[in-house]
């Protein structure tokens, strides 16, 4: 079995970015699972909210960047309101999304497809967020 490396160098940068963007302390989490237990959007997630934090603690950002979870979070703050450690997962989810969106050359949308999408009534903000990203 392949062992996972804990906090490999390549992902350290993202961990730092996530802390910076979200201003949340991932080491505060006790892994109690209360966030997961109460999450109303859990059914669209392939990694559970408490596991998101655990993977971050282990430095395994890649799995998270590829997960459906970060797009499924509704930013409803239910978890924050109950978390005994005041961890705001919605901010961490947002930070993870931003890392994906801000990656260089990662064009999320093709301009030509926009009219069709608009017709499907995708919110304007979602479309805007697909383009205007500062990439460092």
């Amino acid at each position: 079995m392949l062992r996972e490396k804990i906090t490999p160098d390549t992902t350290k940068k993202e961990i730092g970015q996530i802390s910076e963007i979200s201003d949340e302390k991932i080491l505060d989490c006790l892994q109690c699972g209360k966030c997961t237990a109460g999450c109303p959007a859990i059914h669209g997630m392939d990694i559970m909210p408490h596991q998101v934090i655990r993977l971050l603690q282990l430095g395994q950002v890649d799995k998270l960047l590829a997960s459906t979870t970060i797009w499924g979070c509704a930013a409803c703050f239910t978890c924050l309101s109950r978390c005994p450690r005041k961890v705001d997962l919605s901010k961490i989810m947002e930070a993870l999304r931003l890392i994906v969106l801000r990656t260089k050359g990662n064009q999320r949308l093709e301009i030509d497809k926009v009219p069709e999408l608009l017709a499907k009534q995708i919110p304007q903000q979602a479309i805007v967020s697909g383009f205007r990203k500062y990439v460092k």
Binding site: C32, G33, K34, C35, T36, A37, G38, C39, T78
Partner: peptide, 8 residues
């Protein structure tokens, strides 16, 4: 014994 919490 269940390691975990109750959401609601």
């Amino acid at each position: 014994y269940i390691k975990g919490m109750v959401g609601k």
